[in-house]
């Protein structure tokens, strides 16, 4: 009933009523395993669901008999079965969870900082010196092109690049540093099966590896005010060399307008 598929951009498709019957495309390394586990769960749920209802209706329709007495056969054995079922699901899920969350990113991972602000996402690349400059809330001035409050006094901040769209290379691990300036935001990329809240005053790291090039949606999934619904951004996943080009180009222009 549910299969991963590529997102359609055309809105005029008559088959659109079926569109949501699928998970969005899957463009991250940990995605397929997650999808697989999700589908497994959904099928099991569907089976239990129908089974339970079948038992219910069968019991209602069949001729009357004296009440059951056998606690073990009717109550505890099925319970043990369900316990085993749920336990296996839990263990499988924990494995996947541990794989994505228990360990930090590798040192070679691409460093990117994501900042949520009512109602936009900003992305910051550390630049050649590979260190993020200091930011101070007092200096925040979106008007003057300094939405994050970069401190010009800090040598590291000169080469930092702040962008409004997230551009990532394929098959390279990314280490995201999630922060929020004002309220809690929810950083979510459905096509990457990725979701983590950005909490002010408490930066968090998540790491993942994009696989398929393409353009994807970045949503905000934590109620953060009246603009919550339009707080989105675009993720572009490029092949490595194109990404390198983009990066250098972007650096030039940013150094240009810094001059």
């Amino acid at each position: 009933m549910i299969f991963p598929r590529k997102t359609r951009l055309s809105n005029s498709n008559p088959a659109l009523l079926l569109a949501p019957w699928f998970l969005p495309a899957d463009a991250s390394a940990h995605g397929p395993a997650l999808d697989h586990h999700l589908l497994l769960n959904l099928w099991i749920t569907l089976t239990l669901l129908t089974l339970a209802h079948l038992i219910l209706f069968a019991g209602l329709l069949a001729r009357r008999r004296p009440a059951q007495k056998n606690l073990w056969r009717i109550e505890y054995l099925p319970l043990i079965g369900l316990a085993i079922l749920f336990a296996t699901l839990t263990i499988k899920a924990e494995r996947l969870w541990a794989g994505t969350r228990y360990t930090g990113a590798s040192l070679t991972a691409l460093q990117v900082e994501v900042t949520g602000v009512q109602f936009a996402w900003y992305f910051r690349y550390p630049g050649p010196d590979a260190t993020f400059g200091i930011t101070r809330p007092q200096l925040v001035a979106p008007g003057e092109g300094n939405p994050l409050g970069l401190d010009p006094a800090d040598p590291h901040s000169a080469d930092d690049q702040v962008t409004s769209e997230l551009v990532l290379p394929t098959n390279r691990e990314v280490d995201l540093r999630l922060t929020a300036q004002d309220v809690i935001h929810g950083f979510s990329i459905p096509e990457l099966r990725l979701k983590q809240n950005a909490v002010p005053g408490q930066p968090m790291h998540i790491h993942f590896t994009p696989t398929t090039p393409g353009t994807y949606a970045i949503l905000c999934t934590q109620l953060c005010g009246l603009g919550h619904y339009r707080m989105n951004a675009t993720l572009r996943i490029l092949p490595r060399e194109q990404f390198a080009l983009w990066l250098s180009a972007h650096q030039k222009e940013s150094t240009h307008d810094s001059k």
Partner: peptide, 10 residues
């Protein structure tokens, strides 16, 4: 709150 702190600018 007692054990809570924050990351300063550095």
């Amino acid at each position: 709150n007692q054990s809570a702190g924050h990351l300063n600018v550095y």
